[in-house]
């Protein structure tokens, strides 16, 4: 026996999850339909807003500096990051409080493998795949329609990198909140706050200004860095590369590392205080 090959273990997780999803076909199809509908409704909603603005204005509608197709890239990025978070992490974070409550966490703690890895990735949600495809299609549709934008190779390379960073930031917030269920015990968890908090990440950060917006922008950029999750990759792709963007892009790297470190710390502390459930 030797140290596990984490990639091989993850592959088994993905494989077993797929076998499971295929067994419960109806459930899978329903999840896909709801997921894709949610994304399409979002898109429709913003199309509506832009149409209203076109009707009111001079034909150059934009939200805080984002033209319609630039904003479509923003939405596509939201859907893309969401599908990754849902695909890899969401089911696991949800399961965590259940595992704590029922004592199922016992078995995870017995395995000779990193416990956070095991609990974060053991279920892969394949119903997120169609949403991911939808996001890519929307990108392909929107990018050529952005006025006066020529993409450089570096933008194509940076985009996936920032998508990964953004996904990892959301994961950190998620697992950090979910791990509190181990700490607080039983039915209590801060996990539900994830939805409230991440709600703010779905809009361009430029809209957060003024006496109300600026503090929000500060908190959600530097304290809980969810504003960089969608904004940084979306701006990288939808807007011309400019020197003014670099500080924020560099900060995104730092924010990801810091978020992962903090959530890791919370997770480890939580595991130490695990009480198990009686059997």
């Amino acid at each position: 026996m030797h140290r596990p090959n984490y990639l091989a273990v993850f592959w088994m997780f993905a494989r077993n999850s797929l076998i499971r999803d295929m067994t419960f076909r109806t459930n899978y199809i329903i999840e896909v339909i709801f997921g894709v509908s949610w994304a399409l409704m979002n898109l429709g909603f913003y199309t509506l807003i832009y149409r209203l603005m076109y009707a009111d204005g001079d034909g150059h509608a934009n939200i805080a500096g984002w033209s319609q197709y630039q904003f479509f890239v923003f939405i596509a990025t939201t859907i893309l990051v969401n599908s990754l978070v849902e695909g890899f992490f969401m089911a696991n974070a949800e399961e965590l409080s259940e595992l704590t409550r029922t004592g199922g966490l016992d078995f995870a703690l017995l395995k000779p493998i990193d416990t956070q890895f095991l609990l974060s990735l053991q279920r892969v949600n394949w119903s997120a795949v169609p949403k991911l495809i939808l996001a890519l299609a929307l990108l392909a549709y929107s990018i050529p329609r952005i006025d006066g934008l020529t993409l450089s190779a570096i933008q194509f390379l940076l985009y996936p990198l920032y998508i990964v960073l953004g996904t990892l930031i959301l994961y950190s917030v998620m697992i950090g909140l979910a791990a509190t269920s181990i700490w607080l015990g039983r039915n209590q968890s801060l996990y539900d706050f994830w939805f409230y908090i991440t709600n703010f990440s779905r809009y361009p950060m430029e809209i957060y200004e003024g006496t109300f917006g600026s503090p929000l922008r500060f908190v959600f950029t530097y304290m809980i860095p969810i504003l960089v999750v969608i904004n940084v990759p979306a701006a990288t792709l939808a807007k011309p590369l400019s020197a003014t963007n670099w500080p924020l892009a560099a900060f995104a790297v730092f924010a990801t590392v810091a978020s992962l470190a903090v959530s890791r710390w919370i997770f480890q502390r939580a595991l130490m205080s695990y009480r198990s459930a009686s059997s």
Partner: peptide
């Protein structure tokens, strides 16, 4: 929801057997 043999294979990977 899976046959036991799938879990066994997962154990093989986790324990590095």
């Amino acid at each position: 929801d899976l046959p036991a043999q799938e879990s066994f294979q997962l154990h093989q990977k986790i324990y590095g057997i």
